[in-house]
């Protein structure tokens, strides 16, 4: 059990350290364009993707996808970093940048909601090939206002496709709280289309993992779609320095930081050890790219 927690903690911390480094490099002028970090939401990426088989399952991700990517393909961390730095050695030759990532079975794009029908088509391909594979797509609560997601839910239900729609309900979209974006709760959406839904605490990595594992086991048997709503909180800015939420609100949510939750459960010694390992991996990476 503890081994699993350590594993989750290390994965989440690597994502956190990687992204905090990005924010620092941004302010130092190494990066251009934009980066959206998933600081505070690492348990969503780690819990879901740990439950997949990356050899056969596919992931479609969104603008906030570094965490999804690193969890899916940690071995391509340098390629991701190079991509974000705008180097030709990046996984997309520097063409894609932060929001447009691809290796093997992983695809991300910067158009909110637009990957959901694509993931539905991928799920159809999985089903037609009888591969027993799952197509996962990540969206935010804000994206859940995009109409094409509902066209996709209808088709996933109609054709009974192995599509797992994961909604990271971090309660905000850029600057707008979800209460100003939605007239009804997101949990009620997919069931109306015939797609069963489960909602869990997205900051609790074990809950996310166990729920995802259970859903995926069911989906490999019945090949049918599911929706998983993860309640979480964006601890960082939308992209860089663009955050007007109150410090009280932020402080309250710091308490629920998914990393802190695990630090309480692990021994001090292990935490320190993992922190050092992650720091070293990131500083080795920076050295490799000649960044101090």
């Amino acid at each position: 059990m503890s081994a699993q927690l350590e594993f989750f903690y290390e994965k989440m911390l690597l994502i956190r350290t990687f992204e905090e480094t990005l924010l620092r490099l941004f302010s130092q002028g190494y990066l251009r364009g934009t980066v959206h970090t998933c600081i505070g939401q690492e348990a969503c990426a780690v819990g879901i993707i740990a439950a997949l088989n990356s050899e056969q399952d596919t992931v479609c991700s969104n603008h906030r996808g570094h965490g999804h990517f690193l969890m899916f393909s940690e071995q391509n961390m340098y390629g991701l970093f190079a991509e974000i730095l705008g180097l030709e050695s990046g996984i997309c030759n520097g063409k894609g940048g932060s929001q447009h990532l691809h290796v093997t079975n992983f695809y991300s794009n910067g158009i909110l909601g637009g990957m959901v029908p694509v993931a539905t088509g991928i799920a159809l391909a999985h089903k037609l090939k009888k591969e027993n594979a799952i197509s996962v797509v990540f969206v935010g609560d804000g994206a859940m206002a995009e109409g094409i997601i509902y066209e996709s839910l209808n088709m996933a239900a109609l054709w009974q496709l192995p599509l797992l729609l994961v909604v990271e309900q971090n309660q905000i979209a850029q600057s707008t709280p979800w209460t100003l974006e939605h007239g009804s709760i997101i949990e009620d959406r997919s069931p109306a289309f015939g797609v069963p839904r489960i909602a869990v605490d997205g900051n609790h990595v074990e809950s996310v993992y166990n729920t995802a594992k259970e859903l995926i086991t069911q989906m490999r048997i019945d090949n049918a779609p599911r929706c998983l709503v993860l309640h979480t909180y964006r601890l960082g800015p939308h992209s860089k320095g663009d955050d007007q939420r109150s410090s009280t609100e932020l402080a309250m949510n710091q308490e629920k930081d998914p990393l802190k939750q695990l630090e309480i459960l692990l021994t001090q010694q292990i935490v320190t050890h993992i922190k050092m390992r992650c720091q070293k991996r990131i500083s080795d990476m920076l050295t490799h790219f000649l960044i101090s």
């Binding site: 596919t58 695809y107 637009g114 959901v116 029908p117 694509v118 993931a119 539905t120 088509g121 991928i122 799920a123 159809l124 391909a125 999985h126 090939k129 197509s135 109409g147 094409i148 066209e151 996709s152 209808n154 088709m155």
Partner: peptide, 14 residues
Amino acid sequence: AGITGVAVGLALRG
């Protein structure tokens, strides 16, 4: 829009 996306997904996967 949705069926175009579905076709895109199929095209990505062979």
